[in-house]
Structure formats: structure tokens, C-alpha cells
Design a protein around this nucleic acid. Sequence first.
DNA 1: ATTTTACAAATTTTT
DNA 2: TTTGTAAAAT
Length: 778
Amino acid sequence: MEHILGKLNLAQREAVVHTKGPCMIIAGAGSGKTRVLTYRIAYLMEKEGVDPFNILSLTFTNKAAREMKHRVGVVVGNSESQNLWMGTFHSVFARILRAEASKIGYPSNFTIYDSEDAKKLIGNIVKEKGLDKDIYKTKTLAGRISSLKNNLITPKMYERFPELREQDEQSQTPKFKEVYQTYCERCFKSGAMDFDDLLLKTNELLATYPTVLAKYQDRFRYIMVDEYQDTNHSQYIIVKALASRFENICVVGDDAQSIYAFRGANIRNILNFQKDYPDAKTFKLEQNYRSTKNIVSAANSLIANNKNQLEKDVWTENDSGEKIIVHKSLNENQEAFYVAERIIDFKNNQDANFGQSAVLYRTNAQTRALEEALRKKGIPYRIYGGLSFYQRKEIKDLLAYLRLAINQKDEEAFRRVINYPARGIGATTIDKIVHLANERDQSIWEIAENIQFFGNTFNRGADIKIANFVRKIENYANMVKSGLPADEIAEEIAKNSGLMPELAKDKTPEGVSRYENLQELMASIKDFVENQKNAEEGDPSLENFLSEIALITDSDTQTDEDEPAVSLMTIHQAKGLEFPFVYIVGMEENLFPNIMTLTSRADLEEERRLFYVALTRAEKQVYLTYCQTRYRWGKLNANEPSRFLDEIEDKYLQFEVPEFSPFDQGNPRLFGAPNSLDKPPLPKKKSMAAKNNEEQQGTGGAYAVNRKNLRPLTKSEPEGTKDTVTLKPNERVIHEKFGRGLVISVEGTGPNAKATIRFEKAGEKTLLMKFARVRKLG
DNA sequence: ATTTTACAAATTTTT
DNA sequence: TTTGTAAAAT
């Protein structure tokens, strides 16, 4: 243990050994926060003999939890670290809620609705109530419901805040409360909780049952909360309740990195910690181990523009490093090519592998140009975010069947699959069931189960079809009850439901990909079952599988075992990560800071913190790029450079501003260059580069994913490094996955050609040559 | 009951 | 530009 403490600086060491009573660790970017948290837990266990069962450590991603558990394991040994309560707020409290579910009237196998389920349900309710969907927008309603729940305002309590009703009347949605209330009732009837419920219901549980509260207070004698600046009110109250007995609470965060206020995170939680716990000790980790002096200073000079922050002084002993390059491009394609060229330069001249570069952007829409440029240059890349594996339709379809097998009342799962694959049960029939359910205050399933009593309500034959569907689901439920492992049940359901055969029919490349995704899911269930069977107290049941994956997201499943690739992600997703070379693209007004957020000073400050997060991801070199013009929603826009560029002190920057045209004359910095609208009209024709790129477009990497063990990340095919194979009928080929095959026919030419190939093992497939990993044989 | 066509919307999202 | 949803047509 001593040798570990020796690896820490003074502030870090103090934070580690201060174990009794409340404390707050303000951890500047790159200041070794994770190290402190890890060692603190290890110190508690090793030095103070605290039982890991008594330590609760809350993180914001499963990945962070897993990593920390691993790192603690390295210090204290795995068998002990396994017993720590470590995870996200949602996963830890979902676990507790399952154990205590009966107390609040839920089944312990309750479903967790994801945002899509929630939005669909809201949309249905709006429709049922005959409200105008253009005014009652599901997205807006979902956001409002979420924000109310995160502030612990239930439909009942809504009445107590007249300003809420006023707001709803202002926004032309006076019936909001009814929608909210119905939404909650329907979730309850379905035995379902949405993400926010996991926190809200935990609060209800702890507030209603003092014995339950006491039990968990006693269990969690030491509580640690990471990323405290991004906790919302609901989380804050849970932590406060649990910690109130022993007050051994340690929160870690950096107010300068709070970037989730738009999702209900309350920065005051961290700003007011000292008020909540007057005895709290504050530690500041101010030495940055990550970045060069230049980057640290630049980031400091930027964040100094924010009014509302805790005082701290981040510094580093690292080299001063290179200045930040600010580069202007004509348009987003040139910007992307510039980035691609720099990445190649670094690889060639600094021996940096591709994994050391990251391209960060404000919005996902910016990926397209970047992808094209990287692909053209043959640079391997990985896109984080976008449509996650578990959000794909085919995956959600099978999961819906699995969910129904466990909880038949799950309305969203029911609606999703009752007519998929098609069983001739249409919208009218479903509407009638829903109507009956609402009328009789029952769940949809209860109506469907007893459909024979309502026979005359339905069209001839419809009741029979429903009864057949019900019988199917009951069979699945019986398989669950008989205790079969998850993989066997899933396999049977995939076939028996008709889902697998349905997908197998589709021979388009997209269809094939969907089928493969389904196979991937099946494989992952098998993996899960294997792991559970090998584990000491493993549970290979379907219930356990579903509860495990309900809270998993893409960023949790990232791995780095593959060949090094450039990372492409939004700045939000980059939080907590670090890279030697960071490119922040789209540094333009309206894009970053984003115009949609700029309604208040607080919003601008959050955008600035976002930029701060982006800058501080970098270890060695930062590039900031912006464009003179950019296509956005099909229109060419001319934006000024981001105000944030002005906010970094000039001495940390080096401007690289090529002259494109007479427009920029006479302004050496080209800042604030009048972007007057009376410029000569831009040529309608796209540049050659843009034209060439168009041929390369398509679904891109999206379907070219080689997904081993549930790796939902999009991975590029470096097209520049691989010539598209031109095939002729009767040629023999070998495919990475399908093995040997014989070309039957070819349609089209070049990368857009489609070849039908009969594989020895996998049968006949039609492949798009652009994506297919085939080689000619002989 | 399914497929086609037309039209609107479009930031960030650890759960 | 793309993407998704709703009305219209089969």
C-alpha cells in the first residue's frame, strides 16, 4: 500500500487517505482522478479493513465502472474487488429495485423501457387522446417528462407548482399533465420503468420505507460518486439519503467539465456541496499529467470566460509543446481532407499510429465528410455513437419477443411484435385492444389473453389470430419458467416467432446484414450463458440476460484489441478519454457554439465547457479547424469562425489560414472578416473532390461491420488500401466469413457491382462489391 | 393489409 | 442533404 501512496502527489494522497466524513475532490482535467478513486477504494479495503460489500461507488458509464473495478482488482486482488458495489446509478439502483420491487407494486422482472419505447408510448397516448401531434411532439413531451421525473415531480405533485401549468399553457400543451399521468399509469400497468423511473422509484422506495432506507444506509457505509458535476436532482437526493447515516461520502468532479445540464444535470450539486456538508473537506487536484503546457494554458484562458465556477488553477510540469494550429478551409470536404492529411503526416513523421488521433465534432451530422476523406486516404477509423447495436430494428424486434416471454404485460414489446412478422393483425385490431384495455383499466395483455370474451368486437378471424399469438407467447413464457438457459430460449423464439425466417428471406445486402446482426445477438447470448455457467454464482437465465443488457450502451462495448484506428466522435462522447492528437472540427459560430443552445448565458457557458472538455482531451497537439462555407440541411451556409477561437489567448495559437479567394483580402487573421452576403455567388458545381466522393458514398461502414462479440462500433473499410475486386461469373472466390464460393452472376460495375455468389457452406448470397470482403482464388 | 409517395424535420444524450 | 412519418394507392 505504501508504495502505491508513493505514486501520488500531495493533494492526491490527502484525498486518498481522507476516508472519514464528507469530502469533495475537485479534479481538473487530466489530474489523475481515476487513479485517486481507485487507490482510495484500495486504501479503504487494505488499510482500513473495510468490507467491499460496504463500499458503493457510482460512475456514469458502465465502462468507467468496469475499468475502475479492474484497476482496484489489480491492487487488492480480483476476488475482493468483485464484491464492490460499483456501477452506474441506473444499474446499481435497478438491481436494488428488483430486490425490493414488490414493495412498490412492481414485479421483480420489470422491463426497462429505453427512450424509443418511451417515445412510442407517448406518441400512442397523444394519438389516443386525440391531441395534435404537431403541437404535442413526442420528443418535447419525452424531454419534459424526463426533466420532471429527474426533479422528482410526479403527476400528482405537478398540481402543486402552478408555474408548470403556466408553462404548458404557454407552449400550447395544456393537456400535458394528462399525457404525463397516463404515461406513468401505462408504464406501471406494463410492469415497466423508464430510465428516469430507476432513480425516481428508488427515491420513492427510500422515502416510503424507513426500514429499507436503513438497510441500505447500513450497507453502503462508504459512498463515492464520480462525475458529480453531472448528477441530476434525483441522483443527488438518493446519494444524500443513503449517506446521511455515516456521511462517509466522497464526490469527485470538475465543474468546468459539466456538459449535461441539457439533460437535467445540476451543476449546483457540486457548487453547493460545501453548503450541504459544512464539515466537508475539499481537495483540489490541479496538476495535469496529460497535456502540454500550451494546451493547459490555452484551455485555462478559454474557461476563464465563464463566470460561474469553482476556483482552481490547473497547471502542468509537462513540456510546453506545440502551439494549437487554427486552420481555415473552404468547405467541409477540404476540412476533412486537411485533417486526413495531417493524420497521415503524423503517422509518417512522428511514428504515431492511427489510434493516437481523434477527430471531435459538435454534431453527428459532421461525420459524413470526414468519413469520405478518411476512406479515400485509406485511413482506418472508428465512429463512436450513431445508431447503436441495441437500437437496430432487427435487434429490438428479437429483444421484444424475449421481453414478452418474461413480462407479458410489456406493452411496447407487445405492440412491436404482435404483427411482425405479419400475422394479419392490423392497426384497427390493435387499436381496439388498446381501447378495451383503457376502458377496463387492464393491460393490453390481459385483454389479448381473454380475447374470446370480446369476440364480437373484432373482425371475423382477428380474435383467432390474437389467440394464436397469445399462445405463442405463453409457450415462450413456459420455457422461461422451466429454467432453460437464455441461449436455448432465444434460439427457439427466433425460429418459432418467424423472425429469423423472415430476415433470412431478404437477400439485399442490407437484409443480409440484418440477418447477420441477429446472428450476432444470438452469439452474444451464447457468450453470456457460457460466462454465467463458468462464473461461481452465474445465472444464465433469460431474465438475467435482459436485465444486464437493458442498461448497456455502445460506449461500454468499445475495445481496443483491433488494429489502431482514428476515433471519430462527438465531444460529449469524448469525455473522460484522452488522445495524443486531437482535431476539433467545425469551429464555427452557429455550429459550435451551437445555435440551438444559445438561448441564455448559462447555455453559452455550457458550450464553452464543452469546448474545454474537447481541448483537454489532447496530450500533445490540437488542431482547430473551421470552414468558410458548409452545407447544412442541403443549404450552403457561410459562418464566421467560432467566438471560442477568440477566447483562447493568441499566444497559444498558430494560424494557418490559406487564401482561397479575394473574399479574404486584407485581414491577416481573417477573424471577423465580413461574411457579407454580397459575395460573388459560389459556383453551383461541386469541387472535383466532392464529385469523386459521391461515387464512394453509400451506407458506408454501417453495414460493413465486422462485429465480433457484440461490437457495435462502426468500423471502416479502408477503401484506398483495397482495390474493389472485379468479378466475372464462374470465378472462384474466398470470403472472409462465408468461405469459398463460385460467382453465379454479376450486376453493375466497379464498386457498385453486385455479385451473386454460391458459397460452399453458406449458400447463395448477393454481395455489394463495395463492401464485400472477397478475394479471387487461383 | 401492405406498399408507394409526399412532406416535414433536422443540434448534444454517460442512463 | 437525409430520415422518418403520414396519407394515398395498390
